[in-house]
Design a binder for these strands. Sequence first.
DNA 1: TATAAAATTTAGTCACTCCTAAATTTTTAT
DNA 2: ATAAAAATTTAGGAGTGACTAAATTTTATA
Lengths: 223, 223
Amino acid sequence: MKKKLTISTQDYLKTIYELTESGESASTNALAQKLKVSAPSVTGMIKKLASAKPALVEYQRHQGVTLTREGKRAALEVIRHHRLLEAWLVQTLGYSWDEVHEEAERLEHVISEDFEQRIAAAMGHPVRDPHGELIPTEDLKMPADDSVPLSALRSGQSGVVTCIKAAETELLRHLEELGLVPDAEIEVTDYSPFDHNLTVKVGRKAHVLGLSITAKIFIEVQT
Amino acid sequence: MKKKLTISTQDYLKTIYELTESGESASTNALAQKLKVSAPSVTGMIKKLASAKPALVEYQRHQGVTLTREGKRAALEVIRHHRLLEAWLVQTLGYSWDEVHEEAERLEHVISEDFEQRIAAAMGHPVRDPHGELIPTEDLKMPADDSVPLSALRSGQSGVVTCIKAAETELLRHLEELGLVPDAEIEVTDYSPFDHNLTVKVGRKAHVLGLSITAKIFIEVQT
DNA sequence: TATAAAATTTAGTCACTCCTAAATTTTTAT
DNA sequence: ATAAAAATTTAGGAGTGACTAAATTTTATA
């Protein structure tokens, strides 16, 4: 039943999962863009995934795909590998959070379950990776999370940064300089309804942040 | 000039290097056996390697192949990755020397130069891997080695184990129990010319070892 | 040296994954 | 409602790397 999935297949499943989770539909085009592959290639692969022995995706022409239970498990496995690797590379080899992505992207497909368990144990079974992304559990369930995007907060609300959903090195470095990293305590002191800018206090300093940034920072709101 | 070689190509080059180094000729059949691939597949791949932009091997029908300078560099790069990884997995994740091979076999093809340098530095640039195999230097030269197989020693000779050239889990565990691991001091106390058995003193105990074992244990002879 | 055995190569396929160009379907805007 | 735009799929291929069966070349043996 458990088949060895190719690297390509793993990448497709992971991307479908990520698109779906973030609310977008896993359309041919969206997948093509994320995977840096042509749209026809996506159609072809999707058909293969849909007609695999245990189907990995559900598919209807001209509509997006969704993962089957099997597909979701496989996706979570890859995501668990990726996030554990990011955490581990940062902790043991001194990578910075903006450098680990690429390396983890390649390693995630080739590590054994044994390796996975060893690094998880070595780190004390972490719940989040360096970006604050939740790490799927060993039995491949994604932990619940009640964080909301910073962009949803308004004046007076405060909380703790849980996660930065961004991959661009430049942005990550910028946020690090501002102190906007996981576990940072923040407070929104002002909201501009016209441009959706938020004034956010981090430590002693306040910063005015645009929607393109605040939408990527997730907060556990203080109750 | 520097092209990204496929995993398969890397495996071929590494295997050709290893066969050549150990004195055997890198024949189609030998490669097929080592790589667990059919002989025709080897012929096909060899042709591709020989006609690559910078040729990686030299080839003449019905004779073995040899690596070009380019091919050798690529092979040493993979071998460096492999051996550094083995050392690192043992040191940081508690793998035992009979468990690391497979994992390193998969990782060696996907780690970056950055990763390679980080683990090399983290371990203080080790010269040998857990089996005692020499690790190619950063500029891809294989260090010189004057070890000889234990099977070449005779009564009265003694030295230090440098390397165990074996991959089978069972054998490695057995040798570990006997104390026959890198850096162990040994002394040959008897030689049987008929079956080539050697009596070898390791610590307080003496063991009688057959040629199939003594040929795989390498010794730096005491002068 | 003939000839059987072993090694190697040719021939013909296949699975995977990607591509471009062209056709088709769906959506959007007039 | 319909035409233009956007999204998606079909068609036809290509590169990599592996396989089997059959042919050929080399090597070893009688």
